[in-house]
Design a protein around this nucleic acid. Structure first.
Lengths: 360, 360
DNA sequence: CTGAAAGCGCTTACAG
DNA sequence: CTGAAAGCGCTTACAG
């Protein structure tokens, strides 16, 4: 590993000042085209790689963003990380990760650490029930529109409405919603949306998994078969994970999905399409969310950044979710709806985008 | 956002040199205890946060590690990221992420970018079939022991043996292995291990999903029911994802798991315990792998780092995997084995560790 | 169009 | 025990 060449090495090799090399390489256009070319050439020849530490020190910008999540272990993390990484890279930023491991104190520590490392801004996906401490650094919060301080996020309530309406349209009248925590804003919005979309006719009730588990231990039965006996034909989980658990439990009880009951999820996790029956669910447009979050941060970091005039209005806080109808949902009368898996390719970029791109 | 105070601000406020402040704060012990205390006090008072950019520039160490994965979207990524983040944080390093999106060229670009950003070392989880280009920077590769250049990884072969032996011990004689790519070293090792563990009696065959999908399109039937008719009672997938798919397909065909057939997975993904039947699988000790990878990197980065003498031997390249027996596996004669979910708590730190800790 | 100089915030020999 | 000085690699007014 030879010591990396620096600006002065190039300057010396050509016989110009390092200021000129810097100007040439950064393309500010104050250097004659010919010299510029010569410098670029020599830089390539020497294998010059600019040192970001030097640049960061002189400009006061690290061009690094911090990504802090409540729980890196969450299965949705890949979608977040991938989208944020992509949006940040496109904007010329790197992504430093922090894990709050569900703990508010750890979350604060993680944030402090990222600031110390020079992050120019922080994207925070907070844990449910967390109050965001004051942060001496630009922050973009991805939570849910109803959370104060939320910057941008999926419209979980609208996603819930899609699910609720879908189930109602199939003809269900008895709906059981499966949630995990009562103190999650995201889940509260999803559930509120589901109830709204489903309407007031019939019967709707909500099961809280953590309450059940507090009594009966982890992995316990949710008692879904009993609900089916009471007439419930539709089960809407606030996460694909819980939907999977519901499907499992129902099938174990000898009930068939979707012949006897319908199950829906939330989030369109990686495997949702490959189980059988494939899971009807709703999915965030992570690409858009990430792009808006990064754009918001850049606006805070570089106030002089030119914003396209049509974006003068506040950016949309709530990015619509998309319903993905798969075979786990059917009418309660047994007639399967056509299985229109409109998400049959694995390339997220080809997902239909629901809004104008607010590109930075 | 007031401008952050720096060393000189502290020095000026107290009336000493910034060299002294630096020495005091870094605890090198060249400053009188009293002055040290005074400086620390003032630093706290001013809310001083050291600038890593400055330190990085003068020391030539960024204290940042780059994590490059073949596919950030992979459901195993959370386990990797969490473990690496934790190990790095413990060693005083931050983690910058890079996504190669499955593409070798992108992978190289991602690595270059991380180097440019000053990463002191890189942890690389390469895509199957990738030859690692020369990297002008310390690298630790996490792949599989049989891959040349591998630094540390789970012992996928041994994990396979656990699965194979488990199935054999249950009394199965006809085993179908379900793989995805033929060019994945990891999968090759897993499959080799499964075959070895299962032994040479009876019949073993391997199904390649991507080959099937090349013919019949994504999400197609794997034809498992047909195999059952031919006498196959055990299905070992090289990933929980495929196991899930297998379970789904078998159940759809009216076959019951584990009453009629046994299915096993690999990796113990997040949901493996919550489906029904809960999935018998094998899991990496990510914490150990991450710790060893980081330790290896630190050894390259800081050659003078004092290593405990008992670690003088090369660190174990292959970290044993652990079999997690759940209800998806049973003897072919229908007698369920006791469902000993030895992974019933959600705290990964309490997983039994199979080896001495080689802490850095 | 090009260069000399100062500075970003820290650390590190080297003197005192 | 403490400080003056130089330097890490870059950028940025400011002169020429």
């Amino acid at each position: 590993m030879a010591p990396r060449p620096n600006l002065s090495d190039i300057a010396r090799a050509i016989g110009v000042s390092s200021a000129t090399v810097s100007n040439a390489l950064s393309g500010k256009g104050r250097v004659s085209a010919q010299l510029s070319r010569q410098i670029a050439e020599k830089a390539r020849e020497l294998g010059y790689v600019p040192s970001l530490a030097g640049r960061a020190l002189s400009t006061g910008r690290s061009h690094v963003l911090g990504l802090v999540l409540a729980d890196i272990g969450h299965p949705l993390f890949p979608q977040f990380a991938q989208a944020i990484e992509q949006a940040a890279t496109k904007a010329g930023y790197g992504v430093l990760i922090g894990d709050s491991r569900g703990d508010v104190k750890t979350q604060t520590a993680a944030i402090d650490q990222l600031i110390e490392r020079g992050a120019d801004g922080i994207i925070l996906v907070p844990r449910h029930g967390t109050r965001i401490a004051e942060i001496n650094c630009p922050v973009a919060v991805i939570d849910t529109p109803s959370t104060p301080g939320n910057t941008v996020s999926a419209d979980h309530w609208q996603g819930g409405r899609l699910i609720g309406a879908h189930l109602r349209n199939l003809g269900h009248t008895h709906l059981a919603i499966i949630g995990l925590h009562q103190d999650s804003n995201v889940q509260a919005d999803r559930i509120g949306g589901i109830r709204t979309g489903f309407g007031r006719e019939g019967s709707v009730r909500t099961l809280w998994i953590d309450a059940l588990e507090a009594d009966a231990g982890p992995g316990c039965e949710l008692g879904l078969a009993e609900l089916v006996r009471e007439g419930y034909t539709a089960f809407a989980a606030v996460s694909d994970i819980h939907a999977l658990r519901a499907v499992s439990e129902l099938q174990r009880s000898g009930l068939s999905v979707p012949a006897h009951v319908t199950v829906t999820g939330f989030d369109d996790l990686h495997w949702a399409r490959s189980i059988s029956p494939a899971l009807t669910t709703v999915r965030m447009n992570m690409e858009t969310i990430a792009r808006l979050a990064v754009a918001d941060l850049l606006l805070q970091i570089e106030p002089d950044r030119t914003t396209p005039p049509e974006d003068e209005t506040a950016p949309p806080q709530a990015v619509p979710m998309e319903l993905i109808v798969r075979s786990s949902s059917a009418s309660p009368h047994g007639n399967l709806i056509p299985s229109q898996d409109n998400n049959n390719n694995s390339d997220p970029d080809t997902l239909p985008s629901r809004e104008g791109t607010n590109n930075a």
